[in-house]
């Protein structure tokens, strides 16, 4: 499976990273190199092997339903590039 430039652009858009035409060409070859490298996994017979989802053999711990967090809006917006009246501000989103 090889990536073409259109795919690079599509993926960059999905990842919300602006790429220049020049970068697209470079990325095309770099990403294909990496994909070629990982291609060797197809040699491995994984029939009937469950995918590993976590390195710890544990199940999800569940926490009690108590309110013990929040209540510090000032800290939430403290590092925001743009905020007002406790809100984060972003360029207008049109639905």
């Amino acid at each position: 499976m090889a990536i073409d430039q259109a795919t690079v652009r599509k993926v960059a858009n999905l990842a919300r990273i602006r790429v220049s035409d020049e970068q697209v060409a470079n990325l095309e070859s770099e990403l294909n190199q990496i994909l070629q490298f990982v291609e060797q996994l197809s040699e491995v017979d994984t029939d009937g092997v469950a995918p590993l989802t976590s390195a710890v053999e544990m199940t999800q711990p569940l926490r009690a339903d108590v309110i013990n967090d929040g209540g510090y809006a000032d800290q939430i917006v403290k590092n925001a590039p743009a905020s007002d009246d406790g809100f984060f501000l972003v360029p207008k989103v049109i639905e």
Partner: peptide, 12 residues
Amino acid sequence: HDLYPSQSCVDL
């Protein structure tokens, strides 16, 4: 979307 002319406000 209607508090500011060119910006949207986000409340989490």
